[in-house]
Amino acid sequence: MENLTDVDKILAAVTINSQLFTSSSKHFIFLARRKRLLRLNEALERLALTGNKFERDLWNTTNRTVLPIVTAYSISCQLTVNICVLLPILKLLYYYIWYNEVVLTLPLPGSFPYDYTSPFYFILTLILTVLLVQFCSNSIIIVDGLFGWFVYNISAHLQIMRLKLEQLLQLHVEDPNFNRDFVAFVNYHREIIDLTLELDAVYAPIIFLEVTSSSLPICFFAYQLSYLSDPANVPFICLLLASIVLQLMIYCFGGEKVKNECEQLSENIYLLIPWQNLPPKYCRLLLTPFIHSQRVLVLTGYFFTANRSLLVWIFKTAGSITAMLFAWKEKKVV
Rank of each mutant, 00 (worst) to 15 (best):
S18Q: 07
Q224S: 08
T22P: 01
R190S: 13
F178W: 01
L195N: 01
G255D: 00
R56S: 05
P119Y: 05
L128E: 12
L241Q: 09
S229K: 14
K35A: 11
N179A: 11
A204S: 15
Q78H: 08
P217N: 08
H27W: 10
Q159L: 14
F221L: 00
F30N: 15
E2T: 08
P113N: 08
F253Y: 15
A242G: 09
I250Y: 03
L272T: 05
F220V: 01
S293P: 00
S293M: 00
L90G: 11
N233T: 14
C283Q: 15
G255Y: 02
A204H: 03
F220A: 10
D115N: 15
N277D: 09
F253P: 03
F236S: 09
I89A: 04
A201G: 00
K35H: 12
E45Q: 14
Y302Q: 08
A43D: 15
P68E: 09
W98G: 00
N153Q: 13
L228Y: 02
G148Q: 04
L58C: 10
L40Q: 04
V245H: 06
W328C: 05
E267P: 01
M1T: 11
L265T: 03
V81K: 05
L37N: 05
H189E: 02
A306N: 09
F208I: 04
E330A: 09
L126V: 07
G148M: 03
M249L: 15
Y302L: 11
I29H: 14
F120H: 09
P176M: 00
P235M: 01
R46D: 15
D57M: 13
V66R: 03
K329T: 10
H27L: 12
R295S: 09
N3R: 12
D115I: 07
T61Q: 06
L90P: 02
A32N: 11
L92C: 04
I75K: 07
W313K: 14
A43L: 10
S243R: 04
R64I: 05
S309C: 08
F253K: 13
N177Q: 11
E191A: 08
L168R: 05
S76A: 14
D194Y: 06
L197F: 02
V143T: 14
L108Y: 13
E330H: 11
